[in-house]
Simulated scan of single mutants.
Amino acid sequence: MNGVALAMLDDPLPARLARIAATVLAWLLLTPVPSQAAAPASYAREREAFVHEMAARHGFERAELRALMQGARYRQAIVDAMDRPYEGKSWGAYRALFVTPERIAGGRRFRVEHAALLRQAERTYGVPAEVIVAILGIETNYGATLGQYPVLDALTTLGFAYPRRAAFFRKELEAFLLLAREEAVDPSSARGSYAGALGLPQFIPSSYRAYAVDFDGDGRRDLWHSEADVIASVGAYLAAHGWRRGEPIASPATLHGPLEDGLEVGGKRPLVPSLSVAKLKAAGVEPERALAPNARAALIELDAEEPEYWVVLENFYAITRYNHSNLYALAVYELSRAIAALDR
């Protein structure tokens, strides 16, 4: 035992506690604390210009909006998250994140609990219940994870300090403030994803304004608390982006020999279905499912333990309008089939 420790043992208890407290305080003061990265120099300038634009274009009161915007924080973690999206993973790794026994079980429970609403939405928009449920499962685990970031922080960070996509996120910030005014949402307390996506279906603000529906008839489109609005809004979004009622989504495929020269094969990025199934079959692509010969389709190849080939159709492409990734659409498809297995 060293001399300091021996001396402390000889002290009366109050003096000993005071020495311990002083030692701990000194250690805390001397230990470096990771700091939040500072916003770029242009951040404040861009924020002020945005306030003036919103006042001129949409009639926002400058002082109130300036005070709101000054309460937003630049967050380096949001920029970092944008640079490492889930969709950068392999198909095998991506699938393992989202098509899990827990998410399948959660989807089946959600489908049973909201069966009447899902049937009503399916009749209205033509989108199968299990597809709507699967999207909610992948987006927020059926509402369990709605996002940890203040939406204002996310959209100001990306709109004013992420040059690669600043124009896009600046428009989303504009849409969010308009949405907050239209739907009585408190913009200072709303939370969402690192990209500013909102509610159970994780709509970006412009999509919320364009495609969300008031399915429960209460005069508001509430994607946080109204299961009716949430379920119907997913169906409405897919219907508006080309969903074809009663048609298939995708089929695994095998190749018979080398592919025909010039046949385009998609990877992670979506490919517009532009070839007939008959043409793909003539080129040596054999879907496992029976598909209409004249259906418009595309061939994609994904990296798993072994390369996987899929013939994807127009409903698959509609899902990629929700998230522009073949990995996402295929995870929705596989999760939806596992949820629908409840019926089989």
Rank of each mutant, 00 (worst) to 15 (best):
L342P: 01
N141D: 11
L223C: 04
P150K: 13
P101T: 11
L255M: 10
Q202R: 04
K281G: 03
G219Q: 11
L259S: 09
L17M: 15
L223Y: 09
R321P: 09
Y43T: 07
Q202F: 01
S42E: 13
R123L: 14
L177Y: 07
F160R: 07
W27D: 13
S233V: 14
L158A: 04
A21R: 15
Q70T: 01
L155G: 04
W310H: 15
V230F: 14
A239Y: 06
E53K: 07
R45E: 14
R123G: 02
F169S: 08
G92L: 14
A67P: 02
L255T: 09
E53W: 06
A283G: 01
L29C: 06
G143A: 10
P85V: 08
A282P: 02
K279S: 14
Y333D: 13
V277H: 08
V277S: 04
I204R: 14
K89C: 00
A72E: 00
R209V: 06
W27A: 14
L259Q: 06
A166T: 02
V277F: 10
A93S: 13
G246P: 02
A26C: 01
G192H: 03
E53L: 07
L118Q: 13
D186T: 13
L117Y: 06
A167K: 09
L118E: 04
G262C: 10
I20M: 13
E288P: 00
